Amino acid sequence: MGEYKITILVTGANGQLGRELIGFSDQRFRIIGFGRLELDVTNLAQCRAVVAEVHPDAIIHAGAYTAVDKAETDADEAYRVNAIGTRNLTIAANEIGAKLCYVSTDYVFDGMGSLPYNEYDNTNPQSVYGKSKRAGEVLLQSLSQRYFIVRTSWVYGKYGNNFVKTMLKLASERDSLSVVHDQVGSPTYTYDLGRFLIELVQTEAYGIYHASNTETCTWYEFAQAIFEESGLSTKVEPCSTDQFPRPAPRPAYSVMDHSAIRQNGFSQLRPWREGLKAFLIDLNS
């Protein structure tokens, strides 16, 4: 008899985090990914059927409605996916006794603070996207006894579109760029986040976690670091959020305190600049 494998079902398997997670499959655990076409989380009957068939030990729910600006005019769909979809998966997970890990966001906070948000701070989402993700958290907490909620921020990785890839693309087209310097947060590399999620769901340490790469920067400082680490001479000019109005408000301060990681004995994710270096090496290899 071989070593026992745990089975982890991943939703949002075509997204940037989902695709990263599937890459972790090895002898110790089997990771089975479902994209929206194979598993529509808004369909309760389908959630029940798929979860019953796969019978995972844990589900990492990385699928979400993430179009932050579009959500402002498409609230029903954002809630249908982020709230109802999470409820449906919770019901399905409960039926087979599976753990459920829901990937949430810094957008559940108003971003008006000046101290890192801890897991138990009151939420106060300002955008429809943030409110719909918070609604998913509340449904999961009220319906499940075996849940993890992992809030993260400023996610990037080798799959899908993200800030790092956008900056590299713009650098190839222009000599200088303006990037906002009045929003502070922690960039998070999908590889580091994914590794933490897989470690987490193998435990019984249920609850809310804040997980991002450590240390902080503004988007402007992040852009500067991307060009420095890539050896590009693109000039970056700082600007304010007001100069780039968007339909959905962005949190000005979304630094999160990782108290649950510390209290439950997990390892902190590495500093964001180290994660960025590793990502750029991986991207260019």
Rank of each mutant, 00 (worst) to 15 (best):
P245D: 08
G18H: 11
E228D: 13
D242M: 08
A205F: 05
S25T: 09
V54H: 04
I261A: 04
T190D: 09
G113N: 11
S144G: 10
F222C: 08
P125K: 03
D175K: 13
R174L: 12
V108M: 02
S233R: 04
L17E: 12
D282T: 04
L200W: 09
R262W: 08
K277R: 12
T66P: 09
C239Q: 06
I261T: 00
G85P: 14
L143Q: 08
T188H: 04
C239E: 08
S254M: 13
E204S: 14
K158F: 01
G18V: 03
A71Y: 08
A135M: 07
D282I: 00
N264W: 01
H258G: 06
E221D: 10
T123A: 10
A67T: 00
N161E: 15
P271L: 04
D257I: 00
Q145T: 11
R19W: 03
A49N: 05
P238V: 01
A278F: 10
R30P: 10
G194P: 04
V50K: 04
R48V: 07
S212C: 15
A45G: 15
E274V: 06
G275K: 02
S114C: 10
R48K: 13
S142G: 13
I60D: 08
E228P: 10
F227S: 05
F279N: 02
A252H: 13
G63A: 14
R48W: 01
V41W: 10
T73R: 06
I91W: 01
T214F: 12
T166D: 12
E237W: 09
S114L: 03
I96C: 08
T152D: 12
S176K: 07
A252F: 14
S230Q: 07
R273W: 11
S127F: 14
N124K: 07
R134S: 10
R195E: 14
I281V: 07
V81P: 15
L283H: 03
Y189F: 15
T152S: 15
F196T: 00
R246Y: 09
Q224G: 04
S186M: 14
L39Q: 02
V201A: 08
G35E: 07
G275I: 04
G265P: 12
F244P: 12
A71V: 03
G185I: 01
S230V: 06
H210I: 02
Y147G: 02
G136S: 12
A64C: 13
P247D: 04
S230F: 09
V81C: 10
V150C: 11
K169W: 14
